[in-house]
């Protein structure tokens, strides 16, 4: 146990980095997902092709490959992504890690939102239109309120997957929980204590999220009348 307390600051800073990168990536991936989902349901041919290529490519290739390609590839293109905001320093690992996580999860978010929109029965749209609602009103008053209910639980699952996937960013040298724990392990060789601590840290993050998701699922879709058939990233 003493290993954990002696290196408590490393564990804590890793834990916080994991939380920060998850929050940043979650917000970014939600934005990406909404934009891509909208592009996929609008009648714009060219952008639809781009959106399809993006989702299919990022969903069907491993996250590790994407992260490595972005981290080592972007500097080759002359992009150096590190900056300081309000005295906080964001290094290359953090910025590229956030981007990679957001791009990977964003593809899943887009698919989730799209299938949420498509899961609303076409009769709903037809009924709204025949009642004289405009297209925007139909979206705003009829489709989106129903779609949001359907989409929130799977999005919660994607958030859990995102937190878990952030561990892979060890490979690009991001000093998150897994990375710092490996450092401690390499120094002390106290594998069991170190990794038990890591497991507890991850459980503290993901288990409550999982409970929240299943609570929301019961609360929002009690009948589960329409089952979303989604390929989760988990």
């Amino acid at each position: 146990m003493d290993v954990i307390f002696e290196n408590g600051d490393l564990f804590l800073s890793g834990f916080l980095t994991t939380i920060y990168i998850s929050i940043f990536a979650a917000i970014l991936s939600l934005i990406i997902g909404i934009v891509v989902a909208v592009l996929r349901v609008t009648p714009s041919g060219g952008l639809k092709v781009l959106a399809i290529v993006y989702t299919e490519f990022f969903r069907n290739t491993p996250f590790l490959v994407q992260a490595l390609a972005l981290y080592f590839g972007l500097p080759k293109l002359g992009l150096r992504l590190q900056f300081q905001v309000f005295g906080l320093e964001f290094n290359q690992s953090f910025v590229v890690g956030t981007m990679a996580l957001a791009l990977y999860t964003g593809a899943y978010v887009a698919e989730t939102i799209r299938s949420g929109l498509l899961a609303i029965a076409p009769g709903q749209t037809e009924a709204a239109r025949s009642l004289g609602l405009s297209m925007m009103q139909t979206l705003r008053l009829v489709i989106i309120p129903q779609a949001v209910r359907l989409v929130i639980p799977p999005l919660g699952n994607l958030l859990i997957a995102l937190v878990k996937n952030s561990a892979v960013l060890t490979a690009i040298g991001l000093a998150e929980l897994m990375y710092n724990a490996s450092q401690v392990n390499n120094r002390t060789f106290r594998t069991f204590e170190v990794f038990t601590a890591v497991i507890i840290f991850y459980l503290v993050l993901t288990l409550p999220l999982g409970w929240l998701v299943s609570y929301l699922e019961k609360k929002l879709n009690p009948l589960r009348a329409i089952r979303l058939n989604l390929r989760g990233a988990r």
Partner: peptide, 22 residues
């Protein structure tokens, strides 16, 4: 089931690789 589902797969592989030889 609940514990393993809540952990990153990378952590489990890495733990197996490091922990089992010990």
């Amino acid at each position: 089931i609940e514990v393993v589902r809540a952990l990153p797969s990378y952590l489990i592989i890495f733990y197996a690789f490091i922990g089992l030889p010990k």
